[in-house]
Design a binder for these strands. Structure first.
Lengths: 211, 211, 211, 211
DNA sequence: GATGAATGAGGCTTCATTCAT
DNA sequence: GATGAATGAAGCCTCATTCAT
């Protein structure tokens, strides 16, 4: 038996890394299952198997199925925001930034399709059990967009009457357009090409009436 | 199935009416339950009770829970289309018609909130078991809108590059805007007031760049 | 298909009888299982099987395992009281009546051994979840005995200082003596023979000190 | 197992003491948990925590939950006997000794309430898994009492027909009276006051009829 | 020896569905 | 046709036990 000089404390960091890795694996598989079947049909057992751990182990990482779902939801929001923020923070005209936002979402919907679906489902699905949390996350998204619009509104000629409403329009059109297109089976490539079109629609939509 | 027009047993027509009435009652209560709890959490037993019939009776009208859900979905689509079509068919400018469409959806979301929620959930929810059917219904909606846009495109000055894309934009912005507003707790009144704004956004978005 | 003249109401009585019979069968098998293994180790599944019904059927009769246990407990108390009351109501000296009480308990412990064990266990076991209910039942027993002692105390020469204490002594000695004897494997016959001895012990114990 | 009396590694005796101390700590906490929740609901993990050791460590001291329970039971019996023996060995009349026995049990039930409850539960509870061991312990108690009664029977005027029966009566009345009183919420003080009454009841009960 | 993360058997309960009446 | 009692598959979760460190 090997004894490390630093006693029982040394493996702490390794353990912590292991633990975090397992946690991430669970969250990833959970997203996959929840995206495939929805909260109720998703099977904890299957998630555990997919994650390569025992059934009971999940409960060492998450209190119960519901908490696992919420944790997954928060993580999705976090990682999506991590993509959205830089997209909007890019220098350039608002049109360009909205295009970039749109493309960022398209990419998210493509590369992390499970997450995208789960998030949309939590937000627009009927399972009220998660609507409170989903709404909270929605507000986070809106806050990021609002920030850009306010900045734009104060520095450029664009007049935005109601930033909150405008932000909601930006987000809802962007997301729902992508979602609908996905449902209809449109390719990512085609979606990307529509970025300028959609961005312009949004831009013109949120501005003050010209006449 | 043979129908004796002058059968001496019982007036078939009354039976048929009764049967249809019961079917409708089941569908209505199903929408209420499914909207409240989602497909999985909804309870067949409760639906039967609400509809004032026995638990087993539902199975005389629908093969199983899934088929009941799908039938309900189709009926919702049908009754929503019955509201959308006239809204779009109204004479007037496209802007006016889109405003009307938007208001029609707001009203639907308000007066038949259950149906609206269930439909949105089926469309954007993750339960892939119903996505095929939801997609089919989505195409029906788009077809109605496309018809108007094509007609407009040929008779007015408005140039629409891609009717399918434009239709999708019309529908997705309209619906998702309402849905997001609902999630954020905005009142119906406020939504109605935003009709011109949203309609203009859509209109400008789908048209060819003016300059 | 047979149609009864009195419509759907006729089978009511038969159904009610059937239902009650099933309920009793469940309670009997529950007593057997609970007596054999205790509340926690007892298996609802096994009880259902023993009762010749499906696993889920138990839940049509009892809300959950705990309620089944409590219902069983109450029924045991009821049927034990039905034996105890006449034993104590018998005319004769108090000594004779206490002997009869003792013999009645011996018989109960013999013929309905499961019930006797379960009741004792609920009363003296550590499972606090049922102690409140068990205590309530204990009070019922004591009330029956107290009645006799009070009557005796007023009509005979026997002076009983504290009826409640005396009743508790009557019950606890009777029951615990039988229980201990059972644990030690003594025969019913031998126990019955000890009736006069135990009765006398009780009688002399509860009377006022002679000197 | 070889013990090096002069081993240079570590003072074995200290180790042995540590080990025994830990064992005792586990047994004490086990009694607390088992008394609080019963065998099945008691949680090994909680016992370990309370004892200030790791979950797995318990298994270095006891083979499994069942063996831990039995070891605890034996220890309780041992320490109770250590109280009972001197109470009965006290010089004085049998009445006085029985009073002392009663008071000793009352004190046990008060100061070591957990142990008392667990022991009673094992004895009178339904979990047959432990009845064999509980019975063995019961016999130990009876042996101690029998010894006194036999001695008394041969040296004094008291005639005891059947020592075994009498012993059982002594023990069962003493214990069950206390237990019932506890269930009914009577105070320790009141119980102590009843010592002479109970002792006399026992004494008169086990002796041959005087007249 | 001590630890606690990991395991998976086991059990209560729900509820869609069946079917005798 | 209508009913609802009965069914049993299915799934979340707990917790005693193991074992690598």
């Amino acid at each position: 038996m090997v004894r490390h000089l630093s006693g029982g404390y040394m493996p702490k960091i390794v353990d912590e890394q292991m633990r975090e890795a397992t946690r991430q694996r669970i969250l990833r598989e959970a997203a996959s299952e929840f995206a495939r079947l929805g909260f109720d049909q998703a099977n904890i057992n299957v998630i555990a198997e997919q994650a390569g751990i025992g059934k009971g182990t999940i409960y060492l990482y998450f209190e119960n199925k519901r908490e696992l779902f919420l944790a997954m939801l928060r993580q999705i929001a976090q990682s999506q925001l991590a993509v959205i923020r830089p997209a909007l923070a890019t220098p350039g005209t608002l049109q360009e930034r909205l295009e970039k936002l749109f493309r960022a979402f398209v990419t998210l919907a493509q590369t992390d399709s499970d997450s995208f679906n789960v998030y949309m489902s939590a937000l627009y699905g009927v399972n009220r059990a998660f609507q409170a949390e989903a709404t909270r996350l929605l507000r986070d998204y809106l806050a990021v967009i609002s920030l850009v619009l306010e900045e734009e509104s104060s520095t450029s000629a664009l007049q935005i009457e109601n930033v909150e409403t405008a932000s909601l329009m930006v987000l809802s059109l962007t997301e729902s357009y992508i979602l609908s297109a996905k449902v209809l089976g449109q390719s990512e490539q085609r979606l990307i090409q529509q970025a300028p079109l959609v961005a312009r629609a949004i831009l013109q939509g949120i501005g003050t009436p010209q006449q």
